[in-house]
Design a protein around this nucleic acid. Structure first.
Lengths: 202, 202
DNA sequence: GAGAAATTGGAGTATCAACTCCAAAAAGCT
DNA sequence: AGCTTTTTGGAGTTGATACTCCAATTTCTC
């Protein structure tokens, strides 16, 4: 069994369907506005099924955070694992702008939306999301360190600070893009950070 | 009468009290999680009073957006109106970091939180918030233009793009600070943007 | 294939939240 | 003061929402 113990293949599939449906709905309309009934309908399950896999909405929210963290990290690995030159940073930017454009800027960042939604009302969720952002930040920092080792980035540059600033640019850019329904702010914010890195070339 | 027509001094005070209470609660726990009953209790009013001043929760939300836009713009004017040197940008950063520290990083940006909360579920609110961000961005851009005219910023720099990037840094920094309960990310994000402006000095 | 465990269906419940209504009190106007 | 308009109190209604319960069915294990 790949999933949790005591779950058959069919059970795991049902559980996955619930989490996927909940994730999409919560991204589209927020956690509080998403009702259990909404999720039941979208996943095609009955109440007893949902409560068989999750003790309550709260537990489901944590599963959603885990799911979205996985999705986001997959994309970020795809864009950042090969990061070693400034040119590859532009490709990473294109990857994100592309995804945003596909969805017409709806929803913004799955992690950012959950964070803003839950930070003050669910302490456990807040910590989970803080960890997710820490992992993301680390991915960026590792890429910058690689660039530094290759001599693409000045030794004087602080990859840690730059990674925080870059992640902030992504999150802020995504929020502005979401509100304006226009991918331009994300692109501008990230491009400005890339331009800044360019000034830190050796 | 300062407020809307047909409101006595007492009526205006009651209305104000409702909006202020709603604004604080919605910032603390999100719009959907804030019940009319919560607001009634916090403002010390009865249901009939609330519905006398607002047709429904939706209208109240719009009043909250207006209120928070005013509060944020007041602070931003305070920090940006005299903006003409790189040094005054650091003071502006201190102003925001100070406010964030006072509130122990709870709530994040009043406009950013509302934006993330309402962008997908309330089209009218989304547009209102987009306008608020546009005014904020303009305030930053005007400051950068003044710096450019004084020769503090290169003629080659694009104040419009830099203002977008700066606003994104502020929003992203606030989100990360909120999730981590630590003002450092906001400070780092804004400082990095200031450092970038420093590279664009004539 | 038989027993045990996991999964499913769907009706039911208790609570909560948004909103209504009407009559009384206060405030403003002349 | 007397009349009108605004403001207020609080009980009540309607619908939604999270969650329960138990029996029936499917799946797994041996």
């Amino acid at each position: 069994m790949l999933g949790a113990v005591g779950l058959t293949k069919k059970g795991q599939a049902t559980r996955d369907r619930i989490v996927a449906a909940a994730s999409q709905l919560m991204l589209e309309q927020g956690v509080a506005r998403t009702t259990i009934e909404d999720i039941q309908a979208a996943a095609g399950v009955s109440p007893s099924q949902l409560y068989h896999y999750f003790p309550g909405k709260n537990a489901l929210v944590l599963a959603v955070i885990e799911y979205q963290t996985g999705r986001v990290m997959d994309v970020q690995h795809q864009g950042l694992d090969e990061l070693d030159t400034l040119g590859s940073l532009s490709q990473w930017r294109d990857l994100m702008v592309g995804i945003l454009t596909e969805t017409q800027c709806a929803g913004g960042c799955p992690l950012g939306s959950l964070a803003s939604d839950l930070a003050e009302s669910d302490p456990v969720a807040r910590v989970q999301l803080a960890n997710a952002f820490a992992r993301w930040e680390e991915l960026i920092r590792d890429g910058l360190v690689r660039m530094q080792k290759r001599g693409e980035l000045s030794e004087a540059a602080d990859p840690g600070d730059l990674a925080v600033a870059m992640l902030a640019a992504v999150q802020g850019g995504l929020l502005l893009s979401q509100v304006r329904r226009d991918p331009a702010p994300l692109r501008t914010a990230v491009d400005t950070m890339i331009a800044h890195l360019r000034t830190l070339t050796t």
